[in-house]
Design a protein around this nucleic acid. Structure first.
Length: 478
RNA sequence: GGCGCUAUCGUCUAACGGUUAGGACGCGGCCCUCUCAAGGCUGAAAUAGGGGUUCGAUCCCCCUUAGCGCUACCA
């Protein structure tokens, strides 16, 4: 039962990078739209002029695209739509559903503090709602700055059926007469969100659970404006390992960061989708298309989830193993270029690059491992791991053996998996040493690392000349 | 403090009144093996506590506890 008239939106405020929490909110909206054949709308909530910036907007858009999301409408800039918001505020004012408030921030702060000191709950006391006609006239004439406050019903309840959380109810008398329009004439969050969601004909608002307590205010606004409210769904929050809300304190929170760490976009999307949502089957590693077809709001969890980097890395490793080799090679090439390790002469051609990637992929957790641990597969300039050196190249006798192996390899008419292995084992036997020991030594000589793919695969990949050179270099460095 | 939401292995989660409470990450063991991964097999590990409802509660209700969120002329 796809609902092609469904319209959802993601509405970030460009005051920082795209946070993984925000990314997940965006993703769930996008998944819902794509699953239902509806529309996904992007709206930039930049009414906080001081904290918003064009650069941040750009970074957010880039991160979304990188994650594989596209949008059908927008990006709309909320700051450009304030006239519409103001009109709604004025309409409510003229209909008596809102009123002017002349209280200064200082006065309010004072009352708030007093209430706090007396351990009383504080919401705005409606001082300006109860102004006598005379007082009201005086205020208007004095041209003192004022805000427009929404007049919340003093009794009754605001109840809604949350798509994810179920029924949620709030007593109206505990809801404050919140500000719609600031004294500088700029709309506040509640006013602009509702105005824009109405104008953009949003049918489903899917957002973080931190907005649950904002919901009754917004629902009351829809009512006052005489418009049906959209369906509401509140996603559980993403927490850090200490169960606190995920923040910079936990280190990595931006999508950009994970991209820089060498996480694949499909892996991050996969992991984010699994945070709070579960596919019907036990299959957890999915590509985006799979997730789109299986996505279903009814399978979203209500409890907050802790962001687990270890599992993200595992999922990433899984994706690196399953992805088409052409695609992975392209990403590795990009990573090599970015770190200045892409040497066309060394890598020779696409086929050779693919061979190296194929050899390394099951041993890598992120793209970074290709340029770090896998360095010797792409350039000749690599260092030798001290521990590997100590373990395998400590005995001076090994150098003559490596030299000898290089000589024998040079004589080999065909340089293959079988022939190189046969020659090595033969030499080990003659030297009265275990093949495994020699293999270890050669591995360190060729890759600088005691941990690497199967040795003879490495030898064949490097080729005859490079293998011999590296063996002699290791022997010579002695 | 007030209001709201939540509560299954350490973590992500499945089980939508009846299961030996399942899977995955991580951790341990074994197999494979030239190292390390990958892969296969396997082990330890959970229904927060207390009351109800019911023939029967992880599941429904209440209380407690804990965690989180909101509590601005920020979004």
């Amino acid at each position: 039962m796809p609902n092609s008239s469904l319209r959802v939106r993601f509405a970030p405020s460009p005051t920082g990078y795209l946070h993984v929490g925000g990314a997940r909110t965006a993703l769930f909206n996008w998944l819902l739209a794509r699953n239902q054949g509806g529309k996904f709308i992007l709206r930039i909530e930049d009414t906080d002029l001081e904290r918003s910036s064009q650069q941040m907007t750009q970074i957010i858009l880039d991160s979304m695209r990188w994650l594989g999301m596209d949008w059908d409408e927008g990006p709309f800039h909320q700051a450009l739509r304030v006239d519409l918001h103001r009109k709604n505020a004025e309409r409510l004012l003229s209909e008596g559903k809102a009123y002017r408030c002349y209280c200064t921030p200082e006065q309010l702060e004072e009352k708030r503090k007093a209430a706090e000191a007396a351990k009383r709950a504080w919401i705005y006391d409606r001082a300006c709602l109860n102004l006598t006609v005379e007082e009201a006239r005086r205020r208007v004439e004095s041209e003192a700055p004022s805000v427009i406050r929404f007049r919340v019903p003093e009794s009754g309840e605001t109840v809604f059926l949350d798509l994810i959380q179920g029924e949620i109810r709030f007593e109206n008398r505990l809801i404050e007469d919140f500000v719609l329009l600031r004294s500088d004439g700029m709309p506040t969050y509640h006013l602009s969100v509702v105005s824009d969601d109405i104008d953009m004909q949003i049918t489903h608002v899917i957002r973080g659970a931190d907005h649950i307590s904002n919901t009754p205010k917004q629902l009351l606004l829809y009512q006052a404006l005489g418009r049906p409210s959209p369906e509401m769904g509140h996603l559980p929050l993403i927490l850090g390992p200490d169960k606190k809300r995920l923040s910079k304190r936990h280190g990595a929170t931006s999508v950009e960061h994970y991209r820089d760490q060498g996480i694949l976009p499909e892996a991050l999307a996969n992991y984010l989708a699994l945070l709070g949502w579960s596919p019907g089957a036990d299959q957890e590693v999915m590509d985006v298309a799979d997730i789109v077809t299986h996505f279903d709001l009814s399978r979203i969890n209500k409890a907050n989830a802790i962001f687990d980097v270890a599992k993200l890395e595992w999922i990433n490793a899984q994706h690196m193993q399953r992805i088409k080799i052409e695609k992975l090679s392209g990403m590795v090439k990009q990573a090599l270029s970015e770190t200045g390790l892409y040497d066309r002469a060394f890598t020779r051609d696409e086929k050779s690059l693919k061979a190296a990637v194929e050899l390394l992929r099951s041993r890598c957790k992120t793209l970074r491992d290709f340029t770090g641990w896998g360095r010797a597969f792409f350039v000749d300039d690599f260092s030798v791991d001290p521990e590997g050196k100590m373990k395998y190249l400590d005995d001076p006798g090994i150098y003559t053996i490596l030299q000898e192996l290089a000589d024998r390899y040079e004589q080999l008419p065909d340089f293959s998996l079988a022939s190189t292995e046969q020659a090595l084992r033969q030499l080990a036997m003659e030297c009265n040493m275990k093949a495994g020991t020699l293999i270890g030594a050669v591995r360190v000589a060729l890759t600088g690392n005691p941990v690497a793919p199967s040795l003879f695969d490495v030898i064949v990949y490097l080729g005859k000349q490079r293998t011999i050179d590296r063996l002699r270099r290791a022997a010579g460095v002695a």
